[in-house]
Simulated scan of single mutants.
Amino acid sequence: MGFSLTRSLPNLISLARLVLVPAIISMISAQRWKEASVVFVVAGVSDALDGWIARSFNLRSELGAYLDPLADKALIVSIYVTLAIVGVLPATIAIIVVARDAMIVGAFMISWFLDKPVEVRPLLISKLNTLVQLTCAALVLGAKAFDVATGAWLGPLIYLVAALSLASLGAYFNGWIRHMSV
């Protein structure tokens, strides 16, 4: 089966999102907030777009099942770590976001090494978590880009990101523990 641009479109969009990650990180590091904000929104929209195209036109693929979440995680983890490094977000939230993803990937790898692979399937809580994480990052970048005070909304939003990240981790671990017969 050869390469088909149409069949590969969702995967190409995911790859483009991966390519945007270093650009966004570079812009944040240089405090080019408006550019970082615009490119981040483009990356976020690409996440919705590739999924919609794959579902609507039955273009799902095994590669896409891995590539899309990899692009999401690269974007989210990189953004949270970079925003913490430049002092815009507390390090604690970056640690929670990174630790959640590292633990889930670690569990999947252990399953694979033990020849009991877990099906890659996002949970509803995980989709909500990703949406809130992306929204928080977009709002923070937008606030920096347009010099808007984060004031009263940032604290509760960070707590929501932390709570959803931990709830999502718990849901994945619960399924993983049952799958592994621990």
Score class of each variant (00 low, 15 high):
residue 28 I to Q: 02
residue 29 S to N: 14
residue 29 S to D: 00
residue 30 A to S: 08
residue 31 Q to E: 02
residue 31 Q to S: 01
residue 34 K to V: 06
residue 37 S to M: 11
residue 43 A to R: 09
residue 43 A to S: 15
residue 44 G to C: 13
residue 46 S to Q: 11
residue 48 A to G: 03
residue 53 I to D: 00
residue 54 A to T: 03
residue 55 R to W: 11
residue 56 S to A: 14
residue 56 S to C: 09
residue 72 D to W: 08
residue 72 D to A: 05
residue 75 L to K: 05
residue 78 S to T: 05
residue 78 S to G: 12
residue 80 Y to K: 05
residue 81 V to N: 10
residue 82 T to Q: 14
residue 82 T to W: 00
residue 87 G to I: 06
residue 89 L to D: 06
residue 92 T to A: 15
residue 93 I to E: 10
residue 95 I to S: 00
residue 95 I to G: 06
residue 96 I to D: 01
residue 103 M to Q: 01
residue 105 V to K: 03
residue 106 G to F: 14
residue 108 F to C: 03
residue 108 F to R: 07
residue 110 I to W: 12
residue 112 W to F: 11
residue 113 F to Y: 00
residue 113 F to S: 02
residue 114 L to Y: 01
residue 117 P to S: 08
residue 118 V to I: 11
residue 119 E to Q: 14
residue 121 R to M: 08
residue 124 L to C: 03
residue 127 K to I: 07
residue 129 N to W: 02
residue 129 N to L: 01
residue 129 N to G: 07
residue 129 N to K: 12
residue 131 L to E: 13
residue 131 L to N: 15
residue 132 V to S: 04
residue 133 Q to N: 08
residue 133 Q to Y: 11
residue 135 T to E: 06
residue 136 C to T: 13
residue 144 K to C: 13
residue 151 G to P: 07
residue 151 G to C: 06
residue 152 A to Y: 12
residue 153 W to L: 06
residue 160 L to A: 11
residue 161 V to A: 08
residue 162 A to M: 15
